[in-house]
Design a protein around this nucleic acid. Structure first.
Length: 404
DNA sequence: AGGTATTCACATGAAACTATTCTCTGAGTTAGG
DNA sequence: TAACTCAGAGAATAGTTTCATGTGAATACCTGT
């Protein structure tokens, strides 16, 4: 491309008035100045956390609700409010928000405590210290001055799933060791049955109060979308029925507002890229397709080599029949390993990898029994057939082999 | 025919092992006074 | 003698392997009619 052409391209981009006036409003990290349709939950939480303002330790709190039901937004909103009030009343309050799902940050016991320490502005090694040492550092740090500490653990269920529930027990026990300060926990969980298979000791010490966030219905999502769209887009760029359609999509997925917002944002980006001026219904369909496709490709791309090789083997079998079984995949997998010069893993491990791919939605797997002929996974692709070429090209690039 | 027992080909679980990354410690080494 | 280097020990963590046990139903094998 010549320089002139390139320049023209950029100029076109610039002259093209964007339909966004403030795109960040649609990003998931955005905290709006009012939270709609969560009045009841806010009141409950405020009541539970209220004692903070009298420098008393409130009960530990658990918040349940599926994704996109406003848990995180609500708690972030309330904590900034609490911070301001505490400053007014001269209560020494510190609120720490941690997302336990973030890999390499807060997804194990050690890292969680280390991250808490970092929030106090002290740095600790990311590895090399024994766990109780890190706890001791934390104790000293917190107990140094009298302070009320509110720790918000988002997606705790992930943490417990990965590292067991003693973590929570240890954390709650910190309070008994402290003389000056006090710590209060707020756990946020996607799964409603999260505490069910937890150790009863942990349960009783942590789960003192709980608030449930029900899914939004279509009307409520419409309200939210309308409000955000007003801030995010220039007036007059929104086509007839677009918000309603977005809301309908999201409501179908257990009222996930985050999804609806993402849909709207991606649709807007499509409109922008095409140089069109209004967002129409067809863009929503395109956006949905794009989100779906992108997320799957992204997941595949970030898989370890071994998983990719297993998937590659599975794709090789696809041409022959629709029903694919574990043994065949393993065989093809070994062949690919030989081709790519990869040390083949045991069947045991591949079994787990296939289960993981199933969890990720890349494939669909069911365990079936063929009677005398054994028990195995019956697998099929988890994405539409028209995506196969894209997946194949990613895999051959990652693995350095070519499909035939 | 109807009922029971086998058997296949993995699934699923638990524990142990491996490799990597990182800190800390103390012995040995070096350079300057 | 202080500063520096470097190997070794110990931790956390992710990814595997090894060993052990579980599983659902098609088939083989009885049983009594």
């Amino acid at each position: 491309m010549s320089q002139k052409e390139l320049k023209k391209y950029f100029e076109k981009f610039l002259s093209n008035q964007s339909i966004f006036s403030n795109k960040s409003v649609l990003q998931s990290s955005y905290v709006p100045e009012t939270v709609l349709h969560r009045e009841e939950q806010m009141a409950q939480i405020a009541e539970i956390l209220g004692p903070i303002l009298r420098t008393e330790k409130p009960s530990n709190l658990f918040i349940y609700g599926k994704t996109g039901t406003g848990k995180t937004v609500t708690i972030k909103y309330l904590s900034s409010m609490l911070k301001n009030l505490a400053k007014e009343k001269e209560v020494s309050l510190k609120i720490i928000y941690l997302n336990c799902k973030l890999k390499k940050i807060a997804d194990t016991e050690y890292r969680l405590v280390a991250q808490l320490i970092r929030q106090f502005g002290k740095s600790v090694p990311s590895t090399g210290l024994p766990t109780d040492e890190i706890y001791n550092i934390f104790y000293r740090l917190v107990d140094h001055t009298k302070i009320l500490l509110l720790i918000v653990l988002d997606e705790v269920d992930q943490l417990v799933k990965k590292a067991g529930d003693e973590i929570l027990y240890n954390l709650t026990r910190i309070n008994t060791e402290l003389t000056n300060s006090q710590i209060c926990f707020v756990g946020i969980s996607n799964s409603l049955v999260f505490t069910e298979n937890m150790d009863p000791r942990v349960k009783s010490s942590l789960n003192e109060e709980e608030v449930v966030f029900p899914p939004y219905n279509a009307i409520q999502i419409q309200d939210i979308l309308r409000k955000r769209a007003k801030d995010a887009f220039h007036p007059g760029t929104m086509g007839q029925g677009v918000l309603e359609k977005c809301a309908a999509y999201a409501a179908r997925e257990h009222g996930d507002a985050r999804r609806a917002l993402e849909l709207l944002r991606v649709a807007g980006e499509i409109v922008e890229r095409r140089g069109e001026s209004t967002l129409a219904l067809t863009h929503i369909d395109l956006a949905e397709e794009k989100i779906e496709c992108d997320s799957i490709l992204e997941v595949i791309k970030t898989q370890p080599k071994q998983s990719q090789a297993a998937l590659y083997g599975l794709l090789l079998l696809l041409n022959n029949s629709n029903k694919i079984f574990t043994g065949d995949v393993y065989e093809k997998y070994r062949e690919t390993c030989a081709k790519v010069d990869l040390r083949p893993l045991t069947q045991r491990r591949i079994s787990d990898i296939l289960a993981e791919l199933d969890m990720l939605g890349i494939i669909n797997a069911n365990v079936i029994s063929k009677g005398r002929h054994g028990r195995m996974r019956e697998m099929s692709l988890g994405f539409p057939a028209n995506m196969i070429p894209k997946v194949e090209s990613i895999l051959s690039r990652e693995l350095g082999v070519s499909f035939k």
